[in-house]
Protein backbone atom coordinates (compact mmCIF):
# COMPACT_ATOMS: atom_id res chain seq x y z
CA UNK A 1 0.00 0.00 0.00
CA UNK A 2 2.51 2.58 1.19
CA UNK A 3 6.20 1.90 0.67
CA UNK A 4 8.78 4.35 1.97
CA UNK A 5 12.36 3.61 1.03
CA UNK A 6 15.45 5.32 2.27
CA UNK A 7 13.57 8.49 3.22
CA UNK A 8 15.81 11.28 4.48
CA UNK A 9 14.65 14.77 5.42
CA UNK A 10 17.14 17.47 6.35
CA UNK A 11 16.43 20.88 7.83
CA UNK A 12 19.70 22.74 7.42
CA UNK A 13 22.20 20.70 9.39
CA UNK A 14 19.56 18.75 11.28
CA UNK A 15 18.60 15.35 9.97
CA UNK A 16 14.95 15.00 10.97
CA UNK A 17 14.41 11.66 9.27
CA UNK A 18 17.30 9.40 8.41
CA UNK A 19 17.10 6.57 5.85
CA UNK A 20 13.66 5.50 6.94
CA UNK A 21 12.17 2.36 5.45
CA UNK A 22 8.52 1.79 6.14
CA UNK A 23 5.93 -0.50 4.64
CA UNK A 24 2.28 -0.14 5.45
CA UNK A 25 0.31 -3.21 4.40
CA UNK A 26 -3.10 -3.07 2.84
CA UNK A 27 -5.90 -3.13 5.41
CA UNK A 28 -3.86 -2.75 8.56
CA UNK A 29 -3.67 -0.21 11.34
CA UNK A 30 -0.04 0.78 11.45
CA UNK A 31 1.29 3.01 14.23
CA UNK A 32 4.36 5.19 13.97
CA UNK A 33 5.59 5.99 17.45
CA UNK A 34 8.59 7.50 19.15
CA UNK A 35 9.61 10.22 21.58
CA UNK A 36 9.05 13.88 20.74
CA UNK A 37 11.26 15.02 17.90
CA UNK A 38 11.73 11.51 16.57
CA UNK A 39 10.65 12.58 13.08
CA UNK A 40 7.18 11.08 12.91
CA UNK A 41 5.27 14.15 11.79
CA UNK A 42 8.12 15.05 9.43
CA UNK A 43 7.64 11.67 7.76
CA UNK A 44 3.94 12.46 7.39
CA UNK A 45 4.80 15.82 5.88
CA UNK A 46 7.15 14.19 3.40
CA UNK A 47 4.37 11.87 2.25
CA UNK A 48 2.26 14.98 1.63
CA UNK A 49 5.10 16.65 -0.29
CA UNK A 50 5.32 19.42 2.29
CA UNK A 51 9.06 19.12 2.91
CA UNK A 52 11.90 18.39 0.51
CA UNK A 53 13.26 14.86 0.89
CA UNK A 54 15.46 12.25 -0.67
CA UNK A 55 14.39 8.65 -1.10
CA UNK A 56 11.22 7.13 -2.51
CA UNK A 57 7.66 7.25 -1.34
CA UNK A 58 5.31 5.02 -3.25
CA UNK A 59 1.58 4.65 -2.79
CA UNK A 60 -0.05 1.66 -4.46
CA UNK A 61 2.93 1.41 -6.77
CA UNK A 62 2.83 5.09 -7.68
CA UNK A 63 5.71 7.43 -6.94
CA UNK A 64 4.41 10.41 -4.98
CA UNK A 65 7.30 12.78 -5.58
CA UNK A 66 6.21 15.93 -7.38
CA UNK A 67 2.51 15.19 -7.07
CA UNK A 68 0.59 18.40 -6.29
CA UNK A 69 -0.67 18.30 -2.71
CA UNK A 70 -4.31 18.47 -3.65
CA UNK A 71 -4.02 15.40 -5.87
CA UNK A 72 -3.32 13.09 -2.95
CA UNK A 73 -6.95 13.04 -1.87
CA UNK A 74 -7.92 12.20 -5.43
CA UNK A 75 -5.68 9.14 -5.54
CA UNK A 76 -6.89 8.03 -2.12
CA UNK A 77 -4.65 9.45 0.60
CA UNK A 78 -6.06 11.83 3.23
CA UNK A 79 -5.05 12.92 6.71
CA UNK A 80 -5.94 14.63 9.94
CA UNK A 81 -3.75 17.14 11.70
CA UNK A 82 -1.83 17.26 14.94
CA UNK A 83 -3.28 20.62 15.92
CA UNK A 84 -6.80 20.24 14.63
CA UNK A 85 -7.41 22.23 11.50
CA UNK A 86 -11.11 22.50 11.22
CA UNK A 87 -12.82 25.37 9.35
CA UNK A 88 -14.34 27.26 12.29
CA UNK A 89 -16.93 29.40 10.51
CA UNK A 90 -18.36 26.51 8.55
CA UNK A 91 -20.91 23.98 9.73
CA UNK A 92 -20.03 20.36 10.52
CA UNK A 93 -21.75 19.35 7.30
CA UNK A 94 -19.72 21.82 5.22
CA UNK A 95 -16.49 20.86 6.92
CA UNK A 96 -17.04 17.22 6.04
CA UNK A 97 -18.09 18.06 2.46
CA UNK A 98 -14.73 19.73 1.86
CA UNK A 99 -13.27 16.26 2.18
CA UNK A 100 -15.53 15.08 -0.62
CA UNK A 101 -14.58 17.82 -3.09
CA UNK A 102 -12.11 15.73 -5.06
CA UNK A 103 -14.58 12.88 -5.45
CA UNK A 104 -17.62 14.82 -6.58
CA UNK A 105 -17.69 15.22 -10.32
CA UNK A 106 -20.26 17.98 -10.70
CA UNK A 107 -19.20 21.07 -12.61
CA UNK A 108 -19.50 24.69 -11.57
CA UNK A 109 -22.47 25.69 -13.73
CA UNK A 110 -24.69 22.83 -12.61
CA UNK A 111 -23.65 23.54 -9.02
CA UNK A 112 -24.61 27.20 -9.35
CA UNK A 113 -27.97 26.38 -10.91
CA UNK A 114 -28.68 23.92 -8.11
CA UNK A 115 -28.82 21.03 -10.55
CA UNK A 116 -25.80 19.18 -9.28
CA UNK A 117 -26.40 15.92 -7.49
CA UNK A 118 -25.77 16.48 -3.82
CA UNK A 119 -23.39 13.98 -2.31
CA UNK A 120 -26.31 13.26 0.01
CA UNK A 121 -25.86 9.56 0.47
CA UNK A 122 -22.14 9.62 1.23
CA UNK A 123 -22.70 12.54 3.58
CA UNK A 124 -25.53 10.83 5.47
CA UNK A 125 -23.53 7.61 5.74
CA UNK A 126 -20.45 9.42 6.99
CA UNK A 127 -22.39 11.48 9.54
CA UNK A 128 -24.00 8.30 10.77
CA UNK A 129 -20.72 6.37 10.79
CA UNK A 130 -19.17 8.94 13.15
CA UNK A 131 -22.32 9.67 15.13
CA UNK A 132 -22.45 13.28 13.96
CA UNK A 133 -25.89 13.33 12.33
CA UNK A 134 -27.47 15.52 15.01
CA UNK A 135 -24.59 18.00 14.87
CA UNK A 136 -24.51 18.40 11.07
CA UNK A 137 -25.98 21.93 10.99
CA UNK A 138 -23.91 23.20 13.95
CA UNK A 139 -21.14 25.71 13.40
CA UNK A 140 -17.75 24.20 14.14
CA UNK A 141 -16.67 27.20 16.22
CA UNK A 142 -19.15 26.37 18.99
CA UNK A 143 -18.29 22.68 19.35
CA UNK A 144 -15.93 21.13 21.91
CA UNK A 145 -12.46 19.96 20.95
CA UNK A 146 -13.25 16.26 21.14
CA UNK A 147 -16.19 16.58 18.79
CA UNK A 148 -14.10 18.55 16.32
CA UNK A 149 -11.52 15.76 16.33
CA UNK A 150 -14.32 13.44 15.22
CA UNK A 151 -15.39 15.93 12.54
CA UNK A 152 -11.83 15.91 11.29
CA UNK A 153 -11.86 12.11 11.10
CA UNK A 154 -15.15 12.23 9.21
CA UNK A 155 -13.75 14.84 6.81
CA UNK A 156 -10.75 12.62 6.08
CA UNK A 157 -12.97 9.56 5.66
CA UNK A 158 -15.95 10.74 3.55
CA UNK A 159 -14.02 10.16 0.33
CA UNK A 160 -13.35 6.55 1.46
CA UNK A 161 -9.60 6.93 1.07
CA UNK A 162 -7.45 3.86 0.61
CA UNK A 163 -5.02 5.25 3.17
CA UNK A 164 -5.65 7.73 5.96
CA UNK A 165 -2.88 9.31 8.03
CA UNK A 166 -3.94 10.25 11.55
CA UNK A 167 -1.63 12.65 13.34
CA UNK A 168 -2.18 12.16 17.09
CA UNK A 169 -5.89 11.34 17.01
CA UNK A 170 -6.01 10.83 20.79
CA UNK A 171 -4.34 14.11 21.76
CA UNK A 172 -6.73 16.22 23.82
CA UNK A 173 -9.35 13.49 23.96
CA UNK A 174 -10.58 12.72 27.50
CA UNK A 175 -9.88 9.17 28.71
CA UNK A 176 -13.60 8.46 28.85
CA UNK A 177 -13.87 8.96 25.09
CA UNK A 178 -10.83 6.95 24.07
CA UNK A 179 -12.90 3.78 23.77
CA UNK A 180 -15.11 5.45 21.17
CA UNK A 181 -12.07 6.69 19.29
CA UNK A 182 -10.57 3.20 19.17
CA UNK A 183 -13.84 1.78 17.89
CA UNK A 184 -14.03 4.46 15.19
CA UNK A 185 -10.48 3.81 13.98
CA UNK A 186 -11.16 0.08 13.85
CA UNK A 187 -14.38 0.72 11.96
CA UNK A 188 -12.47 2.80 9.42
CA UNK A 189 -10.06 -0.07 8.85
CA UNK A 190 -12.87 -2.60 8.62
CA UNK A 191 -14.54 -0.39 6.00
CA UNK A 192 -11.46 -0.88 3.83
CA UNK A 193 -9.26 2.09 4.72
CA UNK A 194 -5.68 1.42 5.70
CA UNK A 195 -4.68 3.52 8.72
CA UNK A 196 -1.26 4.96 9.49
CA UNK A 197 -1.19 6.84 12.76
CA UNK A 198 1.27 8.84 14.78
CA UNK A 199 0.34 8.66 18.44
CA UNK A 200 1.77 9.18 21.90
CA UNK A 201 -0.96 7.33 23.74
CA UNK A 202 0.71 3.93 24.15
CA UNK A 203 -2.34 2.24 25.58
CA UNK A 204 -4.30 3.15 22.45
CA UNK A 205 -1.46 2.22 20.10
CA UNK A 206 -0.89 -1.18 21.68
CA UNK A 207 -4.59 -1.91 21.72
CA UNK A 208 -5.59 -1.16 18.14
CA UNK A 209 -2.45 -1.48 16.01
CA UNK A 210 -1.71 -4.43 13.77
CA UNK A 211 1.90 -3.32 13.45
CA UNK A 212 4.08 -0.68 15.02
CA UNK A 213 7.16 1.18 13.80
CA UNK A 214 9.27 2.94 16.41
CA UNK A 215 11.45 5.93 15.55
CA UNK A 216 14.02 7.77 17.61
CA UNK A 217 16.23 10.67 16.47
CA UNK A 218 15.01 10.30 12.90
CA UNK A 219 15.78 6.59 12.64
CA UNK A 220 13.70 3.47 12.78
CA UNK A 221 14.74 1.52 15.84
CA UNK A 222 12.15 -1.24 15.91
CA UNK A 223 9.26 -2.70 14.01
CA UNK A 224 6.77 -5.48 14.60
CA UNK A 225 3.57 -6.37 16.36
CA UNK A 226 2.65 -4.35 19.46
CA UNK A 227 3.84 -7.24 21.65
CA UNK A 228 7.20 -7.54 19.91
CA UNK A 229 7.83 -3.83 19.97
CA UNK A 230 6.96 -3.32 23.62
CA UNK A 231 9.45 -6.04 24.55
CA UNK A 232 12.23 -4.50 22.47
CA UNK A 233 15.22 -3.30 24.47
CA UNK A 234 16.00 -0.28 22.25
CA UNK A 235 12.40 0.86 22.42
CA UNK A 236 12.40 0.75 26.19
CA UNK A 237 15.64 2.69 26.23
CA UNK A 238 14.33 5.31 23.85
CA UNK A 239 11.26 5.86 25.97
CA UNK A 240 12.97 5.78 29.33
CA UNK A 241 15.77 8.04 28.13
CA UNK A 242 19.47 8.53 28.33
CA UNK A 243 19.95 7.69 31.99
CA UNK A 244 18.85 4.13 31.46
CA UNK A 245 21.09 4.01 28.46
CA UNK A 246 24.10 5.19 30.44
CA UNK A 247 23.37 2.77 33.25
CA UNK A 248 23.05 -0.27 31.06
Amino acid sequence: MLAIENLTVRFGGVVAVKSLNLRVKDGEIHALIGPNGAGKTTAFNAIFQLVPYTGDIQFAGRELRGLPRHRLAEIGVTRTFQNLSIFPSMTVRENILVGFHSKSRSNFVSELLGMAREPGQQLEETLDFFGLTALAPAHAAVLPYGTLKTVELARAFISHPRLVLLDEPAAGIPTSEKGTLKAVIRKMRDAGTTVLLVEHDMELVMDISDSVTVMDFGEKIAEGTPAEVSADKRVIEAYLGEETHAAS
Partner: peptide
Protein backbone atom coordinates in the same frame (compact mmCIF):
# COMPACT_ATOMS: atom_id res chain seq x y z
CA UNK B 1 -21.92 30.54 -5.11
CA UNK B 2 -20.42 30.79 -1.63
CA UNK B 3 -22.99 28.76 0.27
CA UNK B 4 -24.59 26.39 -2.22
CA UNK B 5 -21.82 25.22 -4.54
CA UNK B 6 -18.94 22.94 -3.75
CA UNK B 7 -16.55 25.45 -5.35
CA UNK B 8 -17.86 28.18 -3.05
CA UNK B 9 -17.49 25.95 -0.02
CA UNK B 10 -13.98 25.20 -1.24
CA UNK B 11 -13.23 28.93 -1.51
CA UNK B 12 -14.44 29.47 2.05
CA UNK B 13 -12.38 26.56 3.33
CA UNK B 14 -9.27 28.01 1.67
CA UNK B 15 -9.94 31.38 3.30
CA UNK B 16 -9.91 29.72 6.72
CA UNK B 17 -7.05 27.28 6.30
CA UNK B 18 -5.42 27.11 2.90
CA UNK B 19 -3.03 24.35 3.87
CA UNK B 20 -5.65 22.03 5.31
CA UNK B 21 -8.03 22.67 2.43
CA UNK B 22 -5.37 21.77 -0.10
CA UNK B 23 -4.26 18.61 1.66
CA UNK B 24 -7.92 17.54 1.84
CA UNK B 25 -8.10 17.68 -1.94
CA UNK B 26 -9.24 21.22 -2.76
CA UNK B 27 -7.52 22.14 -6.05
Amino acid sequence: FLYRTKQGTAARSISQDEYAARVLGIP
